[in-house]
């Protein structure tokens, strides 16, 4: 069985024919060559495959492509090219919040969603939000620092616009 699906990915209308068993993650990576969405555990434990579905972070490995029909998807490529997370990316770089980088795209998607919902999170809230994102390199401290720094920078930019 194959099914025709239409959805919006990073602002572009996409139409493809897929098997129902194809995950959204495989669809993004293999059909659309959007390989910034990483596949780690493929069972919802590691958080490397997070994308925004209807504006909310979800595991692309746990959503079937056919379930995303008619929906809006944003991946790390879309967030990156739009400049929406440029400051977050810079903060990760400044603070050495990545080493191998495998988890980073999922971290970015989640941090972006967190700061959208809660612009001034406590460190404990940042840790709670990242509880489903595994990083085996950094020990998390630098990642929490980078997200915390981004939140503070955004708040100060709002108070004192350049």
């Amino acid at each position: 069985m194959t099914m025709d699906i239409e959805l919006t990915v990073n602002g572009e209308h996409v139409r493809e024919s897929v098997e129902p068993r194809m995950s959204l993650a495989d669809f993004l990576r293999e059909r659309l060559q959007l390989t910034g969405t990483h596949l780690g555990c493929e069972m919802g434990a590691c958080g490397a495959c997070l994308v925004l579905l209807g504006g909310k972070p979800v595991h692309a490995c746990l959503v079937l492509a056919v379930q995303a029909a008619g929906e809006t998807v944003e991946t790390i490529e879309g967030l990156s090219e739009s400049g929406a997370i440029a400051d977050l990316q810079a903060a990760f770089h400044d603070r050495n919040a990545l080493q191998c980088g495998f988890c980073t795209t999922g971290m970015m998607v989640n941090a972006h969603a967190l700061l959208g919902d809660n612009p001034a999170p406590e460190r404990a809230e940042i840790r709670d939000a990242l509880s489903g994102n595994y990083c085996r390199c950094t020990g998390y401290e630098a990642i929490v620092d980078a997200i915390d720094a981004t939140a503070r920078k955004r708040a100060s930019d709002v108070e004192a616009p350049a």
Binding site: G44, K56, P57, V58, H59, N110, A113, S131, G132
Partner: peptide, 9 residues
């Protein structure tokens, strides 16, 4: 219940 992204689905 699980993690934030899981709770969205």
């Amino acid at each position: 219940v699980a993690h934030p992204a899981i709770r969205n689905r």
